[in-house]
């Protein structure tokens, strides 16, 4: 029967720590997670290769999510052109911050799920909210094994049945909720104040994009792991549009910044 379940667009229940007849595997909680006579099972105890901010917001007629393209190894900006978006189906896109390898694994998982749905050929496709619920269960299942997927995911999409935009958040604990605007990583500190000040639900797509670019400029100037190359995805009733990578225009030749501090009056530091 397990094979049948897989074919029907679902994985075996054990994968998300839930089985209808049983419950969470409580054995993972009883101290050492060592399988019989084998190497100790290794859990993710800290992220290694990480990406930072993703910001998403709903505008009038759609949702936009933006991220930069940087991925760090510790404090080193190790990879500078990584795509952090994963499109699932025809109207959902997931953007991730946090451990990049976990994101790549989840990308594969989501794509597989999408394929399993597609082979049904029954015209049913998953709503973004439904994919968010699935990711929420997946993240919660892993955290309950004390081996979390170390990510914060922001997902954008278009809800077909209610005909409205969707924006949702999922994190390593399994926290899930929909919101009007969400920022992850360093953006949850630096971008949220900007969004609170300038966000309106009736923004046009261009206004929304401009606001996100403004946020990413602030992040580029202040977040040492931030990059000026960004990419964004837009979800509307027409589907998903993933942009090319573009570079934000930035400016460093302010007079105060060019003058050596020693030559400045004491009161004129740059902040």
């Amino acid at each position: 029967m397990e094979d049948c379940l897989r074919l029907r667009g679902r994985r075996a229940p054990d994968n998300y720590g839930y089985s209808y007849h049983g419950d969470y595997n409580q054995h993972v909680l009883c101290g050492s997670a060592v399988s019989s006579g084998q190497e100790p099972i290794k859990h993710t105890t800290r992220p290694i290769t990480t990406s930072s901010t993703v910001i998403g917001l709903k505008f009038n007629g759609g949702t936009i999510v933006m991220s930069d393209t940087g991925v760090c190894y510790g404090n080193m900006l190790r990879f500078k052109s990584c795509e952090r978006f994963c499109q699932v189906g025809d109207r959902t896109v997931v953007a991730a911050s946090g451990e990049y390898s976990d994101f790549q694994y989840l990308t594969r998982d989501l794509k597989e799920m999408d394929t399993r749905d597609w082979v049904q050929e029954d015209g049913c496709s998953r709503e973004p909210s439904s994919i968010a619920a699935y990711l929420g269960r997946t993240f919660y299942g892993q955290r309950s094994r004390l081996d979390p997927y170390w990510n914060q995911m922001i997902m954008a999409g278009w809800q077909k049945t209610s005909n409205e935009p969707y924006l949702g958040y999922i994190d390593l604990y399994g926290t899930t909720f929909p919101e009007d605007y969400i920022a992850s990583g360093f953006g949850s500190y630096l971008a949220i104040p900007l969004l609170r000040k300038e966000y309106r639900p009736d923004m046009t797509e261009d206004e929304a994009k401009a606001l996100l670019q403004k946020c990413f400029m602030a992040l580029f100037y202040r977040d040492c792991t931030g990059l000026s190359t960004v990419q964004y995805a837009v979800a509307t009733s027409a589907g998903i549009r993933l942009s090319d990578v573009s570079t934000l225009t930035h400016k460093w030749d302010y007079k105060l910044w060019l003058t050596p501090t020693s030559q400045l009056p004491v009161s004129a530091s740059s902040w």
Partner: peptide, 29 residues
């Protein structure tokens, strides 16, 4: 069970055709 599983996992009602296909697979086995 199948419907509850789908609700738990996807917050969504299991499409009728898929439920019937599940029954078909079980019967065939």
């Amino acid at each position: 069970t199948q419907c509850q599983q789908e609700k738990y996992e996807f917050d969504e009602a299991l499409p009728v055709g898929r439920l019937v296909a599940d029954v078909g697979d079980r019967s065939q086995a």
